[in-house]
Simulated assay, not measured.
Amino acid sequence: MNSTSRICLLFWSKISIKSCILIIAVLACISILNDSLLNMRLWNEDGTISSDDDVKPIAEIIQEAPAPQFGPAPPTVPSGPANTVVLTTVNAAFVNIAENWLASIRKTGIWPDISIIAEDNVAYELLKKRNDIRVLLNQYKTSHDLPIQSPLHRKFVNQRPTHIKKFLQRGLNVLFNDVDIVWIDDPFPYFDGNYDIYLEKDHHDKKNVLSTGFVYYRATNPSLLLIKELVNRIDKNNNNTSEQILLTDIINENIIPKLKVKMLDASKFPNGILNYYLDFAEWREMHKPVVVHNNWKGGRDEKIKWFKDARLWYVSNRTDVQIT
C-alpha cells in the first residue's frame, strides 16, 4: 500500500469514528426522551390529566390511531366546512326524526359531511338508501323507543363519546347532534374564536348541567383529552351515570390542560325546557334561533307532535317504523 492510500484510509477511518460517536449520541438522546414520555402518569401532581400518548401533537396521534371504518364517502359532495363531520346516532324508532333533522339541514342551504351511526339493522337498511350521507352500522340492536334515563337509554347514549373519539383521532372536527334537533340556520359561524369545545347548557333541575346533545368538538389535544377521560369514566361507572353528568363534572373540575370551552347563546340554541313554556312562533320571531333542540320531551310521538305544532316537521311519515 502506497503512502497516498494509507493517508486516505486514515482520513476515512477518522470520519467514520466521528460519525459513529455522533450517531450514538443522537440515539442516547432519543432513548432518554422516550423514557421520559413513557414514565408520564395519567394524573399530574396538580390534578390535570396527562399521558404519553395524550401529550403528543394531534398530527402524531392521527398517524398512530387505528382508522375507524368510515365507509365509502357519499356521492353528494359536502358543501360545509372542511375537515369536519356532523355526527349522530339513531335506532329504528327514531329514523323518521332523523329524516326530519336531515331535511332541516338541507333547508339551510349547506350540506356538511354527515355520518349517521345506525344502532340496529333496520335503521341501517332504511338510511343506507340515501346517497347524501355516510351510514355506519354499530350493531347495538335496540330498535325500541327507549325511556329517557332508563338503563338501556343510558347505555345507548353512553356509546356516543367512543364514536366521537374515533373521528377526533383522525383529525376531524366533530359536530355531534341528537336527532331530535332542527337546524333553522347554519350553525358553523357561531363556532368562532379559539375554543376547543362549544356546547349548550341543559338547564336541568336548575343546575349547571351541560347538554351533550349538540356539541362541537375541534380536533385539538385538549378536546381529545376530554373525550378520552369521558370514555374512561363511563367505563369505570359501568353506565350507571349518564355521559351528560360525567362531561359536566370533568369540565367543572378543570382538569384538562388548556381546555377552552364556549357556551352557546341559549336564545340562538334553545333546548326543550325553553320550548315547553313559550309559544315557539313568538320565540322564533323574537330571537331568530339557529338550532332548536327538542329534548325535555317524552318519547318519539311527543317529540313529533311538538315539531308539527311548531311547524318544524318537514317530512312525511314514510319512514315511520312500527316496532313490535
Rank of each mutant, 00 (worst) to 15 (best):
L230Q: 05
M263I: 11
R233K: 15
M263D: 09
L226S: 02
L210D: 08
D301G: 04
H203L: 14
H287S: 04
N238V: 07
I273W: 15
L210P: 03
R311C: 03
D249Q: 14
L210R: 07
Y198G: 05
D235F: 08
L312G: 09
N237G: 07
R318N: 07
S242E: 11
D309K: 05
T212S: 07
D205P: 03
E200R: 01
M263R: 01
D235I: 14
K305L: 14
K262T: 10
N295R: 01
N232T: 12
R318G: 02
H293P: 02
W283I: 01
Y216C: 08
N254P: 12
K268T: 02
L278D: 07
G298H: 07
N294M: 12
E282W: 05
G213V: 00
V290F: 04
V290K: 02
A281C: 03
V315K: 12
F307L: 13
N221R: 15
D235M: 09
Y217D: 06
D196T: 09
N295G: 05
F280I: 00
V261Q: 02
K308E: 15
I245T: 12
K260E: 15
P222G: 01
T319V: 06
L226F: 13
I245A: 09
I273H: 12
N254L: 08
K303P: 01
N208S: 12
E200L: 04
V291K: 00
I227G: 05
N208Y: 14
K288E: 06
L246E: 02
